[in-house]
């Protein structure tokens, strides 16, 4: 089986968010870019499966839609252990646009993994859209992925529990926390090898975005925290009951 992991190139999650002067674009100056955390967990799980299921998985590919500046993030995925990488040469405009771009690569894979959302625009949409473009099954909020005797088993979280499912391949698994415990860190050897692994660049297909981010705003500053004395815990309950009226 061939496994594809769709990767978003996102600002480090500790980034202090700033916008340009007229608040119409995200200010990327000085930003450290990383693999979207859920995509990184998906890659980790794919590598675990490749190592533990004999020769079931023949290849792990990572793909991203992005301009040249997304390549260090793909190289990092190669250093972590992906076999090859594809960059689709376009600015990722919106989920619909990105999913249609990814479809041209994903059609040749058996298991396609996408993170449940990207930590920048929090769209939660690309994986589902991609599966519909390919007209193949999708399972969302996947917290476990296993291959047993060539059959795919997944767990998905539902409101108030979890379900175990089997599915046909090809399919799209939209994964969340739990799929792998800790993301892998590239080793020195991995980083050296990543330089020699193929990173292919494909032209974008002609399509349009259906949505556009037009302006941004930072949330208003929060008023100061009211500190209650340790000796007077009862006062906290009074405040929550009488002032905030939430208990």
């Amino acid at each position: 089986m061939k496994v594809l992991i769709c990767i978003s190139n996102v600002p480090d999650t500790t980034t202090k968010i700033r916008f340009n002067a007229d608040n119409t674009a995200f200010d990327t100056a000085g930003i450290q870019w990383i693999i979207n955390p859920w995509d990184e967990l998906a890659l980790t799980r794919a590598l675990e499966l490749k190592e533990t299921t004999g020769d079931t998985i023949e290849k792990i590919t990572v793909v991203a839609v992005g301009l040249k500046d997304a390549e260090p993030t793909l190289r990092k995925a190669l250093a972590i252990g992906a076999d090859d990488a594809v960059r689709i040469d376009a600015e990722p405009k919106d989920a619909f646009f990105v999913a249609e771009q990814l479809a041209q690569v994903a059609k040749d894979y058996d298991i396609i993994l996408c993170g449940i959302e990207a930590s920048d625009y929090n769209g939660s949409a690309v994986g589902g859209m991609l599966s519909e473009f390919l007209n193949i099954p999708s399972v969302s909020s996947v917290s476990k992925l296993n291959i047993e005797n060539g059959d795919v088993k997944v767990n998905r979280e539902i409101d108030g529990g979890s379900e175990t499912l089997s599915t046909e391949v090809p399919f799209v698994a939209i994964v969340q926390k739990g799929i792998a415990l800790e993301p892998r860190i590239p080793s020195m050897r991995g980083i050296m090898m990543a330089r020699k692994k193929p990173l292919n660049v494909l032209p974008a297909v002609e399509t349009e975005a259906l949505t556009e981010f037009v302006s941004y705003e930072l949330p208003p500053a929060k008023s100061a925290c009211k500190i209650v004395d340790t000796e007077n815990v009862k006062e906290l309950v009074d405040l929550l009951h009488n002032e905030a009226k939430v208990i």
Partner: peptide, 8 residues
């Protein structure tokens, strides 16, 4: 967006 750090 940005996990609660801003609105868009």
């Amino acid at each position: 967006v940005f996990t609660g750090k801003a609105f868009a």
